[in-house]
Design a protein around this nucleic acid. Structure first.
Lengths: 151, 151
DNA sequence: ATTGAAATTTTGTTGAG
DNA sequence: CTCAACAAAATTTCAAT
């Protein structure tokens, strides 16, 4: 287990709000020097607690006005391997996230499309033809809020 | 509508993989100077195409071994406002994401917990007591893959 | 083991052509 | 856009606790 003290937790909370603050600015707020702060951040990266930094894009401004969450239940389980399904679904450009889950569905997909007509095309020609895809449930995203989470 | 040319698209694709590459390194790979690359990135930020940079944390290494997606159907629709529900759910520390969706469910939540026993506590004492919460469906995350997406 | 001060290197930022 | 200059941040070195 990796040691996360109170200062590390504060650093992670601050960086979770805005990931491009400088080590100097962060350290000043916590009463720590710039190199000390920087070394802590690098240690969190090296130990894998911080896996990286991700760009947060505005899908609408890029022309993708529709985001849909799909719950997919596999039919033919045993005949088609999970690997086949995952490889096929990963090749669909409109799919942003593939989550293998346990419960009523086997996979959850986050899919973007330019509009509903475009989404119908993706659904009919890409999703429904996936190897082993059975029941599919859809939820259209209206709004989304990301919270700090625990820690 | 904001103009996104081929170079911008390449920048976004490269930054989506790793958001802390320097403008200089990116420019070299695309045959651009460092200031030119940097100005393009800043323009994408100013126009809101890039909303920011987010930390990608390893929940397991932070002691949160369980991630669950909850689909929540509201009962008492009309009696309790969506705002009440959203305010209450946003105050639960274990909730990472709140998605208002259209379909079989009204809300989708991403919830983390230390283990299944901890998740049961969150479910019983936090989720089930939410104002207006009706049916709840759960999917436990096994593995997750983020893809580049379109563009 | 972790820190802070100073030195060095790299990157971000602005202005001129 | 490039080029050149400058400001700020990252990264290393090192002495001290």
């Amino acid at each position: 287990m990796i040691e996360i003290d109170g200062i590390d937790a504060k650093l992670l909370r601050a960086l979770a709000r805005d990931a491009n603050q400088s080590a100097g600015a962060l350290g000043r707020r916590l009463g720590l020097s710039q190199p000390a702060t920087w070394r802590r951040i690098r240690r969190l990266e090296e130990t894998g607690v911080i896996r990286g930094r991700q760009l947060r894009l505005d899908a609408e401004k890029l022309g993708f006005g529709v985001t849909v969450f799909l719950g997919v239940k596999l039919a033919l389980r045993g005949r088609v391997s999970l690997e086949d399904f995952e490889r096929a679904v990963s090749a669909i450009p409109e799919v942003q996230t593939v989550e293998h889950v346990l419960g009523l569905y086997d996979y959850r997909l986050r899919v973007v499309a330019r509009d509903l007509a475009d989404f119908e095309r993706v659904l009919r020609r890409r999703i429904m033809t996936l190897p082993g895809a059975g029941d599919v449930e859809a939820n259209v995203l209206l709004s989304e809020e990301r919270l700090p989470g625990p820690l």
